[in-house]
Design a protein around this nucleic acid. Sequence first.
DNA 1: AACCTGACATCTG
DNA 2: TCAGATGCCAGGT
Length: 105
Amino acid sequence: MDETLREFFNEVYEITRQIPLGKVLTYGKIAILAGRPQHARWVGRAMALAPDDTLPCHRVVNSIGETAPGWTEQRTLLENEGVTFLTNGCVDMKKHLWEVFRHQY
DNA sequence: AACCTGACATCTG
DNA sequence: TCAGATGCCAGGT
C-alpha cells in the first residue's frame, strides 16, 4: 500500500480515537479532517482494516447516520453509550454528531 | 490497460 | 422523500 495512504490511515485512526463517548462522526467529515475530502471511501476501508481493538470505530457512521452494513453489534455498542436511534434505524445525528468544527474556533 | 468493487457523498427527477 | 445516477479513488483481478 502507498505510503501517503498509510499516513492518511494513521491520521484517520488518530481522529477516530478523539471522538467522545456518546458522539459519532461521519466518514466524510473524517476524510476532511484528515486533509483528503475526496477519500471518504478510504476512511471506510481504514475502519474495516483497523487492527487496534481499542479503536472506537463504532462511532463512525455514514452521512445519514446509518451503521456499517453487516455489523449489527455497532448499534448495540452505540446504544450502550447513550446514542439514540430514529425510527428509520439511523443514529439521531442532530443529537450525537460530534461538532468538531465548532470546538476548533 | 480495462473493468470491477466498496463500512462514501451528493445531486436529481 | 427517495431510489437511481454520478463522482470519487486506489486496490484487486
